[in-house]
Simulated scan of single mutants.
Amino acid sequence: MEIMCLNGWGGKLHEALVPYLARTSPNILCLQEVIHSPKSEKDWLTYQDGDHILPQRANLFRDISTVLPEHVAIFCPAAQGVLWDDDTSIPSQWGLATFVHRSFPIIGQVQGFVHKDYSPVGYGDHPRSRSAHGVRIWDYDANRAVSITHMHGLRDLNGKMDTPERARQAHKLLDMSRSLTEPDDLTVICGDFNVEPDSETLSILCSAGLTELVTGRGFDSTRSTQYKKPGRFADYMLIDREDAVNNFEVIHDPEVSDHCPLVLKV
Rank of each mutant, 00 (worst) to 15 (best):
E2F: 04
E2Q: 15
I3S: 11
I3F: 15
I3E: 10
I3H: 13
G8C: 15
G11Q: 03
K12C: 06
H14M: 07
E15L: 09
L17M: 15
P19N: 11
Y20M: 10
T24W: 04
S25V: 02
I28F: 07
L29R: 11
I35R: 06
P38S: 10
S40C: 12
D43W: 08
T46I: 14
D49C: 08
D49F: 09
D51Q: 14
Q56D: 02
R57M: 01
A58L: 12
A58F: 06
L60N: 00
R62K: 06
S65M: 00
S65P: 01
T66S: 02
T66N: 02
H71M: 00
V72M: 04
A73L: 03
A73H: 04
I74D: 07
P77Q: 09
Q80K: 15
G81I: 09
W84L: 09
P91E: 09
S92D: 05
S92N: 06
L96W: 00
L96R: 00
L96Y: 00
L96I: 12
A97H: 00
F99Q: 00
F99C: 00
H101W: 03
R102E: 13
S103Q: 12
P105E: 13
P105H: 13
Q109F: 06
Q109M: 14
G112D: 14
V114M: 05
H115K: 05
S119I: 01
S119Y: 01
P120D: 07
G124K: 01
G124I: 03
D125M: 07
S129C: 11
A132Y: 03
A132P: 02
H133Q: 15
H133C: 11
G134Q: 13
R136E: 08
R136H: 11
I137Y: 01
W138Y: 15
D141V: 05
N143G: 12
R144T: 11
A145G: 15
V146K: 13
T149W: 13
H150W: 02
M151D: 02
H152L: 07
R155A: 08
G159W: 04
M161W: 10
M161E: 15
T163E: 07
R168S: 05
Q169F: 00
K172M: 08
L174N: 05
L174R: 05
S177T: 14
R178W: 09
E182K: 14
P183C: 08
T187W: 04
V188K: 02
I189Q: 04
F193P: 01
N194Q: 07
V195T: 12
E196T: 13
E196C: 07
D198N: 15
D198H: 12
S199T: 08
I204F: 05
I204Q: 09
I204N: 10
A208M: 11
A208K: 10
T211H: 12
L213K: 10
T215W: 03
G216E: 04
R217M: 14
S221K: 13
S221P: 08
T222E: 06
T222P: 04
S224V: 04
S224F: 01
Y227L: 09
K229Q: 13
K229P: 01
F233M: 14
A234C: 13
A234R: 08
A234Q: 09
M237I: 06
D240W: 03
R241Y: 09
E242P: 12
D243K: 14
V245S: 08
V245C: 11
N246S: 10
N247F: 08
E249N: 12
V250Y: 09
D253L: 08
P254N: 12
V256D: 07
S257N: 01
C260P: 12
L262E: 10
V263G: 05
V263Q: 13
V263R: 14
V266A: 13
V266N: 11
